[in-house]
């Protein structure tokens, strides 16, 4: 994840996601976080379907109480079952992705080692609140997914996920008319909070709805590999 401030001072606007250090030879690890029900699993499923023919993908889910998310991805046949693993978080979704990442790292390394040359590892966080953020020790870049129907004031409320994630996704924009949400306002509030980092809108009821996000991942992977 890019630092809130660049190396040259408070307002250095360096928003490029992480490049792979020369000593590291492994998959790009992408965190997908956001509030409960905002569409994280649906997004990971859509991205797998859009990218699986060109990239080797694996997924680690963090389920709060069941292995629902892993199960959903398996039954949607987004990826072969042995490419999807679930981690238990002991009631604390944010602890498992931020404070004590041991169980997640363990799962990530195990599943990466079982498959030949993984390109991208998705780590889906358990649904949490606006203060949750992935540790840089666990993922290289992170996507924060918020729900249009969760209130159009969420971008204004901010928090580390909204402000600092490498990509902010405003999902379920198809629901805006039903919940009187102003998506343009959400976009402009979010942009104002994010110091130039990208914001995208999506509707995942459309199978191609994650197309722009898939492009962002291709670009991030390119950058991760070449540092350019």
């Amino acid at each position: 994840m890019s630092p809130p401030h660049g190396p040259h001072g408070l307002f250095q606007n360096d928003v490029r996601p992480a490049a792979r250090p020369p000593s590291v030879d492994r998959a790009l690890r992408i965190g997908v976080g956001g509030p409960v029900g905002s569409g994280k699993t649906t997004l990971v499923g859509s991205l797998c379907r859009l990218l699986r023919d060109e990239l080797s993908l694996v997924v680690v889910t963090n389920d709060i109480f069941t292995s629902e998310d892993a199960q959903a991805l398996r039954s949607a046949a987004a990826l072969p079952a042995d490419r999807i693993v679930a981690v238990e978080t002991g009631c604390c979704p944010h602890t498992a992705i931020r404070d004590d990442i041991a169980a997640n790292l363990d799962a990530v390394e195990q599943v990466e080692s079982l498959h030949h040359r993984v390109d991208v590892t998705f780590v889906e966080s358990g649904g949490d609140n606006l203060t949750a953020i992935f540790s840089q020790g666990l993922v290289d870049v992170q996507i924060f997914v918020i729900d249009t129907a969760g209130g159009d004031d969420v971008p204004r409320k901010g928090g580390p996920g909204v402000a600092l994630a490498d990509l902010l996704v405003i999902n379920k924009v198809d629901l805006a008319p039903y919940v009187a949400a102003d998506v343009d306002l959400m976009l402009s509030d979010a942009t104002a909070r994010r110091d130039g980092r990208p914001v995208m809108r999506s509707s995942l009821v459309d199978p191609e709805g994650a197309g722009e996000i898939a492009d962002w991942i291709r670009h991030s992977l390119e950058h991760w590999r070449t540092g350019e």
Binding site: E88, T89, G90, C92, T95, A96, D100, A102, A103, D106
Partner: peptide
Amino acid sequence: GRFPAGGHAYSA
């Protein structure tokens, strides 16, 4: 207990 060794997910 904050040492990052995964203990938070173990209920014994």
